[in-house]
Nucleic acid binder design. Sequence first.
DNA 1: CCGATACATTGATGAGCGTCGATGAGAGCA
DNA 2: TGCTCTCATCGACGCTCATCAATGTATCGG
Lengths: 108, 108
Amino acid sequence: MPARTATLCCTPLTEAALSAADATEVASLLGALADPVRLRLLSIVAAQGEVCGCNLEGPLGKSQPTVSHHTKVLAEAGLITSERRGRWVWWRPVPERLALLRQVLGGQ
Amino acid sequence: MPARTATLCCTPLTEAALSAADATEVASLLGALADPVRLRLLSIVAAQGEVCGCNLEGPLGKSQPTVSHHTKVLAEAGLITSERRGRWVWWRPVPERLALLRQVLGGQ
DNA sequence: CCGATACATTGATGAGCGTCGATGAGAGCA
DNA sequence: TGCTCTCATCGACGCTCATCAATGTATCGG
């Protein structure tokens, strides 16, 4: 859960050409979202506000290792955060991270 | 240039869980952007407003077939449009497409 | 026509990724 | 201490994708 230092760049890509470095950083963030399973995972977590990992396998229809893999990718991208409670891991969204993406994509 | 029927879904993924079908559609759109070269390509086109294809190879530092490949991917995603003028192909951004993405990502 | 230029397509190659079974690491309970 | 449950990691498989050389297609100038 290395929170990804991630100041991210960012002038919107509609205003000026991205540098190669910025483009790589933004691309990796977008890549974390460019997967149907991870999009549904994030939407479930964001809609609920807080979700136990044990309640993800079912809705996603994926194996436990696969779900664990996707949560890891989203967490490393800074889009969700984890908190351990006993045997369970609870996941919460990081709205600022999505807002940052919208800004890069030309948000005002 | 099959303009991608693409009404796209879209309730923001922060409000309700995405369906599998919607997630796949959004993921493919995000996938078109989740590449450093395509991000820079789009940023160049968006910043200029209109760019000749012959002026892309240089700034991107990629071979002609590679650039052609990326423009095709972005065009099929509906993010840019092409117009032929003599021997040249001019590329223009499709801002509504980016706006749609921002909306799915939780834009107001 | 003929050569040159801009772009698209093809085919091949190498890297990366999604998936899952098997296994490991921790936490709780009896 | 054992057993169970949740989650993370590992290893392997199959598929997709980015890249480029070679080739094809279309346009313009002479």
